[in-house]
């Protein structure tokens, strides 16, 4: 399955909200999330994807959004290293009760290797089962378990060294 320009615009209208919501959640900023939404779909227009698993557009958009946002978080982290981190204003968070924990989680995600960060996002922030994650990633449930274990180990050592 592949999408022409009309198909991408249609997809934007029907599925764009999934990308926007998750980008907002992952990036913690409305402005950044709207930029991410545009960038992801603009890139889809530029290089129409041949979708590997036409079974689930939702899975595919989850993947793309996660990848894009983790990149942003990593770049932010690089930016933070270059700037004085104490001078940088806190990003306005869009959600109240989980907001504080999420802000801290975003920083952790920016420090993990992407594959580990992604399983953490899927499992904890999206509440996905190992089975669902294995659908999105196209790997076995056992590999998902392995990745989550590695991720938790890395986060623990981050905590210890923090």
């Amino acid at each position: 399955m592949s999408l022409d320009a009309g198909g991408v615009e249609q997809l934007y209208r029907t599925h764009g909200h999934v990308v926007l919501r998750r980008a907002r959640h992952l990036l913690g900023s409305d402005v950044d999330a709207h930029e991410a939404l545009q960038d992801i779909f603009a890139e889809l227009l530029r290089t129409p994807p041949a979708l590997r698993s036409p079974g689930s557009l939702v899975a595919w958009l989850y993947q793309t959004t996660t990848h894009f946002c983790l990149n942003q978080l990593r770049n932010r982290r690089t930016g933070l290293r270059l700037l004085d981190r104490h001078l940088r204003p806190a990003q306005a968070s869009t959600e109240a009760p989980r907001g504080e924990a999420l802000a801290a989680v975003r920083q952790l995600l920016g420090r993990l290797p992407e594959n580990l960060a992604a399983v953490v996002v899927y499992h904890h922030l999206d509440g996905m089962t190992h089975e669902e994650i294995s659908t999105v990633l196209g790997c076995s449930r056992r590999q998902v378990g392995y990745l989550l274990e590695r991720a938790h180990a890395s986060l623990q050592s981050e905590e210890r060294s923090a």
């Binding site: 041949a50 979708l51 793309t64 992407e114 992604a118 590999q143």
Partner: peptide, 10 residues
């Protein structure tokens, strides 16, 4: 992203 093989997304 779409081409990413086997395990692990993008």
């Amino acid at each position: 992203v779409a081409l990413a093989a086997t395990c692990l997304l993008a």
